[in-house]
Simulated assay, not measured.
Amino acid sequence: MRRLAIALGLVLLLPAAQAQETLRDRIKARIEQRRAERGQDAPATGGLQELQVQGRKVLVHLPTGYDGSRPAPLVLAFHGGGGHAEYMADDSHYGLQKKADEAGFVVAFPNGYSKLQGGRFATWNAGGCCGDARDRSSDDVGFARAVVAALKARYRIDAARVFATGMSNGGMLSHRLACEAADVFRAVASVAGTDATASCTPSRPISVLHIHARDDDHVLFDGGAGAGAFRDESKVMSFVSVPDTIARWVQRDRCTAPARRTLERPGAYCEVHEGCAGGVSVQLCVTDSGGHSWPGAQRVRRGKEEASQALDADDLIWRFFEQTPPGPSQ
């Protein structure tokens, strides 16, 4: 009798349990639907959305308060040579997620070409540099275009305010994108990575910001590869100098005004070339110290010189992007 009573009890409880399970499934489905509507249905990695584009990882940070109700600016941030997306997304090294929250832009961290399954030790094909990406002629301009298209399909992106920035080899790729994808990117900003292109014919004038330390021991300020660059010299190039990089963009953008100093403080200065075609500008910011690092960073790689605190690269870059007139929507 006792066994019968237990069995009857289980039978009576079963519909209620099934109803609870059905309710949970409905709630879960509704949550997933709402997240998808807000562009938040991608897997999360440490608070970041993770996408796959052309077989490569792209980490995405949506700014605080993002709900997809209005288009947001987009910044693609490219890691340095030998780095990877997670490292570029680390705010202790770069601070771009925090800046995105403050300013309200979406920031994405694509992964470069890597032979390793996890994507570590990746490089970008920026023209003359660097590593396996260059040697294998990786189509990183095409990849960057595909990343932007994927993000526009998933999130509410303002196509007239799409920007690129990067560190070292990633900065070099930003210069290349200005040359070959000016129809997509409104402006670019490079830190510690000079122009590595052999030829450059932008489809329209484009604003360019370059940030560099005078004592950079990788990409030497006055040109050439320093002692801190890749040990295998065949993986890099004789880097173009900072002055030549700026001169190239002044010519490409047909700037007529001489450089005007916009900031000068102990350890750093900035200057701008105006009177350029299409209302764009070419800007340069220089720190006296900091080596091959991101100005304002709180942490650098072990054994490297501390980053200069005379400038905050995140503030400079976003102010530059924000002040660039929006282009036509694509």
Rank of each mutant, 00 (worst) to 15 (best):
A126M: 03
S190I: 14
V148G: 08
A122G: 12
S190P: 15
R134V: 02
S174Y: 12
V148P: 07
T194Q: 15
V106F: 06
A187F: 06
Y155W: 15
A189L: 05
S174N: 09
E180F: 05
F121C: 06
S203M: 03
A133D: 10
M167R: 00
R156E: 08
G118T: 13
R145W: 07
R154M: 03
S92I: 02
A149S: 15
G128A: 14
S168D: 05
C200G: 12
S207N: 11
A159F: 00
C179K: 05
Y113M: 07
S137G: 08
H84F: 14
D195F: 13
F143M: 05
G131S: 15
R176K: 15
V141M: 02
F163Y: 15
V141Q: 01
G193H: 03
G193M: 01
A189V: 04
V162G: 00
P205T: 01
D132K: 12
S199A: 14
H175S: 07
A150Q: 11
R145V: 09
H210N: 13
S138G: 05
G112A: 07
A181I: 04
G128Y: 03
G118L: 10
L116G: 04
H93R: 11
A103T: 00
G104K: 03
A159Q: 08
E102D: 12
L173K: 09
H84L: 10
D139A: 06
S207D: 09
V141F: 01
A181G: 06
P110L: 12
A182M: 01
D90F: 05
P110F: 13
V148T: 10
Y113S: 10
D140P: 04
A178G: 07
D91C: 02
R161F: 02
R136K: 14
V188H: 05
G104E: 00
A198M: 08
L96S: 02
D183H: 01
S114Q: 12
R120W: 13
